[in-house]
């Protein structure tokens, strides 16, 4: 039924005006190919989170069309839609009163999987994110480090076998070393499982390292979308070059030290 060649996500001229008149997203068009990671970047308040929420209908678009696996999301039941799309938020958004196991098992339970399938899926995922069940399953979120919590957050988002996961600054609360490790692990996980992802990030370096595609936003609109190499070689505007300047300067500084 799903055409493997078709884009997972196809966003066409989508806009969002909040009640009160803030135009957070304007005329955005994007596509996300299967298995790819799209980074949304831009300065604070430019509409990244809003765009993400339009995809799983935490907010409803004011205009335009969003196709997920070829279906218009506006025609789908929002609750069912969200269960088919993973959701990772800044911080981790784990439920503090549930154990690691219960946090991860939540979506399979919402999807009414049989207990056997849920159990094996949860165990597999915890292994994959580096938190073996035997040691971590019964712990509560407060008993984990920030990095471990974020891993549980990924496992929870992936538990329902979604084709797409949406992430809002998933690494921003972590220290640089933990962040670097998790970024690599996430890419490996994605290569393994083959899901697609949209990731909001403030950090251009993170976008350059991780993403297949980068979309730069300003004032609710997309300034440029392309691969990291395309962006580095031909930034569409001074604004985009400005954003790329920070990681470039850091790279130069490090290279000079090494020489």
């Amino acid at each position: 039924m799903i055409d493997p060649a078709a884009p997972v996500l196809d966003i066409r001229s989508v806009g969002k005006t909040y009640p009160g008149g803030v135009e957070a997203v304007r005329e955005v068009s994007l596509t996300l190919e299967r298995g790819q990671l799209l980074a949304l970047t831009g300065e604070s308040g430019c509409g990244k989170t809003t765009l993400l929420k339009l995809i799983n209908r935490l907010e409803d678009a004011s205009g335009g069309l969003i196709l997920y696996e070829g279906e218009d999301v506006a025609s789908l039941d929002p609750v069912q839609l969200r269960r088919r799309i993973g959701w990772v938020m800044q911080g981790d958004g784990l439920f503090p009163h549930l154990t690691v196991l219960e946090n991860v098992a939540i979506i399979p339970r919402l999807l009414d999987w049989n207990p056997e399938r849920t159990r094996s899926r949860v165990a597999d995922l915890l292994d994959m994110v580096g938190l073996p069940s035997a040691e971590y399953a019964e712990r509560y979120p407060v008993e984990l480090s920030g990095g471990q919590r974020q891993r549980v957050g990924f496992a929870r988002a992936l538990a329902g076998e979604p084709d797409l996961i949406l992430m809002d600054e998933p690494f921003s609360a972590l220290d640089p070393i933990t962040r670097d490790g998790l970024q690599q692990e996430f890419r490996a996980l994605q290569a393994d499982l083959g899901f697609s992802a949209v990731m909001v990030t403030h950090d251009m370096a993170e976008a350059l390292i991780m993403a297949d595609q980068i979309a730069v936003m300003q004032d609710g609109a997309i300034l440029q979308q392309g691969t990291p190499v395309e962006l580095l070689q031909s930034p569409a505007s001074d604004y985009v070059s400005g954003l790329l300047e920070t990681p470039r300067r850091q790279m130069r500084a490090i290279r000079e030290l090494g020489a």
Binding site: R83, F95, G160
Partner: peptide, 25 residues
Amino acid sequence: PQIREAARGIGMTRGQSLRQVELPL
């Protein structure tokens, strides 16, 4: 609000969020 949004974001209905997350907390 983060917790409530997480419950909504992963696909809980209003009632599920209330029973499974908000009331226990």
